[in-house]
Design a protein around this nucleic acid. Sequence first.
DNA 1: GCCGTTTTCGGCCCGACTGTTTTCAGTCG
Length: 558
Amino acid sequence: MKELVIDVLEKASYLMELAGENFFKIRAFRNAIRALQMSNAEFDAVVAADGLREIPGIGAGIEEVILSIVKTGTADIYETLQQRVPIGLLELFKIPGLGAKRIRRLHEELDITNLGELEYACEENRLLTLPGFGEKSQANILKGISELNSYKGSFLYPTAYAAAQELLAEIRLLRPFRCELTGALRRAVEIVGQIEILAAGISPKQILSEPNIFLLEPKEEKNTITGQTRGGIPVILHFSDAARWGTDLILTTGNKLHLDYLLSLAKTKSASTNQPYLPEKPEEADVYNELGLDFILPELREGLFEVPSDEGRKVSFPQLVTHADFKGVFHVHTTYSDGIATLEEISQHGRTLGYSYVGIADHSQSAFYANGLKRDDLLRQMAEIGQINAENPDITLLKGLEVDILSDGSLDCDDNLLKKLDYVIASVHSNFRMSEKDMTNRVIKALSNPHVTMLGHPTGRLLLARRPYPIDLDKVIEACHKYQVAIEINASPRRLDLDWRWARKAYEKGVMLVVNPDAHRLAGFAHTQYGINAARKAGLPKNALLNTRELGEFKWKN
DNA sequence: GCCGTTTTCGGCCCGACTGTTTTCAGTCG
């Protein structure tokens, strides 16, 4: 319900911008949305207890709107706005460089009402006729549209995973012999195109006739059922049986390169067809054993690190890192900058999670948009951390800072202050459009500062939203090794940056890695698991991650 | 529209960059 409310409020706020409503009214809506997103309280319970007004940012007006959405699924203000502004214009906000004012002009002067019409107008050079729009704007818009199109049909891991778990639970109620998640989700890939599930001891017919299993446009085909979830995520249900469960689980888990590798080790089925095949076995491990391999974890099956470069040699992995190995996490934002949890709450939460330390790292001063910490704020925060630590001997909050790397590679905080901190994360948050060479030099210069202990989200990518900025990661990794700086695997499911493919390279070069939740609220601590998934995909053992060190075992610099 | 008072109306986050201008509006983080 909370998701629906936020969705309607968000759309309404964008429509208000396009309708030219009062700027501060729009901001009030945005603040209310943020307050709802950040609220840890159970939304339905708050509504039931008539407690919406107690959330700061929600007053009488927005309360009424929310209650209407809860009751009817929509609100008058939203319906009225839709009469005034074409809803298709909302997509245009996703194009970099387009905001409300320019979108409004595209609508009023070129009669554009959706993404398709805008693309067509660009192709006909009609944007050039508008004052304020030039060739570069038009080219950038076209580029933005083609990027958006390339994201279609892709879903972030957590979105697909949550929907898949729901579906799995519904199917398991029918008591199949076995039923498991498979495909890219089982391999914990950060972006997936579909949900795949393998079931045994149940027929397609049984599933199709079960009213509680929701599938949009279900189709039965060649021993599979395809369809979509409510959220429009494509689903494939595969069917197997007990005798060849292991084989089918491997075949559906993939990926193709991994299967090609397995097939290259397999026998040919018959001399006449010359087709290799995987042995039919009830368990996955039996198949691998038959091929002369140890069991390979699903996360590693990408046809990359698990495949030996020299034919005939076996690759073996050490025990991969798990959350149980974690002693603590770093990179947590608080109410001092743009987080919503207090230091006290974070300390308590860290203890609940069984951590012995939690690293605080708010934004530095130049991050105005995030209420970055000025010198005095930082000193005040450090004092408060000292106090909380004194009162809670079993968990330690570490004094840190996520300092902005400025355009020239200098840091947004002076060295005298930095040296007072337990650790420092350096991150790029501005001026992304630099040449690869300049960006690489910028970051390496920041790494050379002796107080920097970690490099934050090294490529700035936002999955399905923003491409990484150009940067020579080989050189950056080399510099991290030289200056003894750890590289962050940012566990936000939208970032997962450093990418696991590169994390493997950094590990092989002897660079320390660290999974950072980049939490802005208590619930954000749960993102750590996505970062661990990435670390496991990179084949990292416990000792590759700083998080598995005990407090006092950090050796930042030699 | 929300908030907090100087209690019923005034203030509400800022600076850099881009592409377009020819001095600046719009966007972004």
